[in-house]
Amino acid sequence: MKKYLNNIFNRKKHKEGKKSTYDFKPSWLQNFLLELGGLSRFTGNFFRELFSYPFEIKEFLKQSYRMGLSTLPLIGITAFIMGLVLTLQSRPVLVDFGAESWLPGMVSVSIVREIGPVITALICAGKIGSGIGAELGSMRVTEQIDAMEVSGTNPIKYLVVTRVLATTFMIPMLIFYSDAISFYGSYVAVNMHGFISPQLFITQAFDPLHYFDIVPATIKTFFFGFAIGIIGCYKGYYSTNGTEGVGRAANSAVVISSLVIFIIDLIAVQLSEIIHIFSI
């Protein structure tokens, strides 16, 4: 087994006394598998600590408050623009077909099912994911995580579990907030070309929304939140090489979690389609 692993990783140990090096140059595939293995083990540690006493409720609430509150303005502005632009861009096509009254419904389905959750999750990956990666990364390189461990505190429980839980529960809430603001943006855009009462807009917007639009879209937001939290924590927790490593941790936290958001979205769409077909 050892020989097999040595062959895989192309390890060449030089005899002592001579130049002692360790030629470990993994290919991109080996790097990817190592990263995947590391992330899986880290996720396992997260679940092991999640259900063990004591529960860090105070730290969890602090992180939730911090993450949620700090992201509200950014999400609000982007969501408003998203709803406004989507409505303005879709309107001419619907007007051509004489289906302008479908505009609120079409926009609401797009926002609730797809655009709202994905765009908001991507913004959160950039804002929250990079923040976690940089924070834990700097704590790692300045030995604060080691200091925590030496003082008898489990850093996985105190730093990782609280942050991952906070993103898992706060990102769905931010997505609900984003959807609501996008609806308002859409309402403003509709009213730029004529008057429609808020009651009529809400009726037209919610009319085409069904159970199968809302539930899968809501469930996947928890997975988005979990992915952003765990990837940010993983990259920060194992950050190396000083300040350069902190920057790299923050950057790769954003890149990987953005990619994972699209993968989760793809899986969620496929699963909800299958469930929808079987339920008919």
């Binding site: 300045t142 604060q144 080691d146 200091a147 925590m148 030496v150 008898g152 489990n154």
Partner: peptide
């Protein structure tokens, strides 16, 4: 084990080179 390690660590102080104060 983890518990014993934590008990031992409460009796052993460690001063880090970088001080490791929580920012």
């Amino acid at each position: 084990n983890h518990k014993e390690l934590n008990e031992m660590r409460t009796r052993v102080g460690f001063i880090f080179q970088s001080n490791a104060l929580y920012d």
